[in-house]
């Protein structure tokens, strides 16, 4: 088991290195720099600034210097917020984004699994078509459309829920979490429907029915565990996607999370900020994928056996 994790982490390192390299050079190739602004800066000041941030060095030296800092866990100073390091800004925004992502994931799981299992019990009937069509709409509807729609209905027409902020007024976390979670709920619904349909056609489900088990016990005790493995495997990428993809929702609802810094950094050519956020998020993606692989493997007794008795 440990060996498996170790190998997987080793495999992830080159991936992250490629991400860093690609981002580093792409950002630099974009026109403009952090200190190009409408307001003209005196050449001497600009020069001093560039020296301070190592921008006067040749590009490849900057690159290796950055890698060196990164190896020590230092993501560098922010270009835009003088005196603050990228690490500080990331860790200020992370708890908010993580909380939002967690709520969204819980919503996505509750709605998605229920709808998917429900649909799988009577395939190709209204019980299947209605939730699955809703899921399709959920997948197709971008959050920048769904968010304002929810605001309009629940915030303005019905006046039930606050429409901006995070943790200021009770209930202001509901709309952003629902907006962010709905696309994932839809995807999870489709995954659990497919997984359950597959399992429900297995021979051992027939065995369970032949024992005289009532249908709800056939579903909960015999089918659910195997049927939800695709969902578990998807949780890692989903969680990573929720963290990395929350910037639209954070912007709509004025939430001081990671995503907003990320977008602003891109506009500001805040090189270290862009790079730092990218590295951080891609590491998270790799990490959550690993975790969900391990959980999925653990749920499958055949693979678990494999882990316990050595092997990679």
């Amino acid at each position: 088991m440990l060996r498996f994790m170790f190998v997987r982490i080793l495999q992830a390192l080159p991936v992250i290195l490629v991400v860093i390299t690609a981002t580093f050079f792409l950002v630099r190739s974009a026109p403009g720099g952090p200190f190009d602004q409408e307001k003209v800066v005196i050449p001497e000041v600009k020069k001093a600034l560039e020296a301070q941030y190592r921008l006067d060095l040749p590009l490849h030296e900057q690159y290796f210097a950055y890698l060196g800092d990164l190896a020590q866990g230092d993501l560098g100073p922010s270009f835009k917020y003088p005196g603050r390091s990228v690490n500080e800004i990331l860790f200020a925004g992370l708890p908010v984004t993580a909380e939002l992502g967690l709520y969204a994931l819980i919503i996505a799981l509750c709605i998605g699994v229920t709808a998917g299992v429900f649909a799988s019990l009577r395939p190709n009937t209204a019980q299947d078509y209605v939730p699955m069509s809703l899921a399709m709409i959920g997948i197709c509807m971008p959050s920048f459309l769904l968010g304002p729609l929810l605001v309009l209905v629940f915030g303005i027409w019905l006046d039930w829920l606050p429409i901006t902020g995070w943790g200021d007024i009770p209930g202001d976390k509901i709309l952003p979490a629902v907006t962010l979670g709905s696309a994932y709920a839809a995807y999870i619904a489709r995954l659990s429907r497919a997984g359950m349909l597959e399992i429900l056609s297995q021979d051992y489900i027939r065995t369970a029915r032949a024992k005289g088990l009532p249908e709800w016990r056939v579903v909960t005790q015999h089918a659910l565990r195997g049927g939800l493995i695709p969902v578990i495997a998807f949780l890692g990428p989903a969680l990573a996607g929720l963290l990395a993809g929350s910037f639209v929702v954070e912007t709509i609802f004025q939430i001081p999370g990671l995503g907003r810094f990320y977008v602003q950094a891109a506009f500001n050519r805040d090189y270290t900020m862009i790079l730092g956020t990218t590295v951080f998020l891609s590491s998270l993606i790799v990490f959550f994928n690993l975790v969900s692989d391990i959980i999925a493997a653990w749920l499958n007794p055949r693979l678990r056996h494999h882990f316990q008795h050595g092997g990679s």
Binding site: Q202, Y204, R206, T207, A210, K211, G212, R225, G226, N300
Partner: peptide
Amino acid sequence: GRDIAMIFQDPMTCLNPF
């Protein structure tokens, strides 16, 4: 499962692997 019980063809797939 009480008065009438059944066994099936393929024992590899008829037991719940989980």
